[in-house]
Amino acid sequence: MEEALDKVLDDTMNMPGVTGVLCTDKLGLCLGARGNAPAHSSGLIATLANHAKALEANAEAPPIVCLESDSGNILIRAKDGITTAIYKVPSGP
């Protein structure tokens, strides 16, 4: 189980533009982190995903949260009880 998760985290880290990746359960327990994704942010990431889902309770698919700043973007999505955050380099203007 852990090996499979580690492989997914490593594969994601090797994708272009990715600087960090983090997986957490729905309670905010960090399951794994790579790169510049701090493990202590797992609780906040789970909170953001839960609040985003509450925006539209009737939506079929869970939403993607995108936080944009000058130094990079964070993409967050919760699915099947696991919330994943991907840290990326900033997108173009």
Binding site: A37, L44, L55, E56, A59, P63, I64, V65, C66, Y87
Partner: peptide, 26 residues
């Protein structure tokens, strides 16, 4: 969501100031 993201704990250096937040559904 804004209060959660503005605590400065989402990045390792805690300095990131977000300029925009999008929540994308289908």
């Amino acid at each position: 969501m804004l209060q959660a993201s503005s605590r400065g704990q989402l990045t390792s250096d805690g300095s990131q100031q977000f300029k925009r937040m999008s929540v994308v559904f289908d």
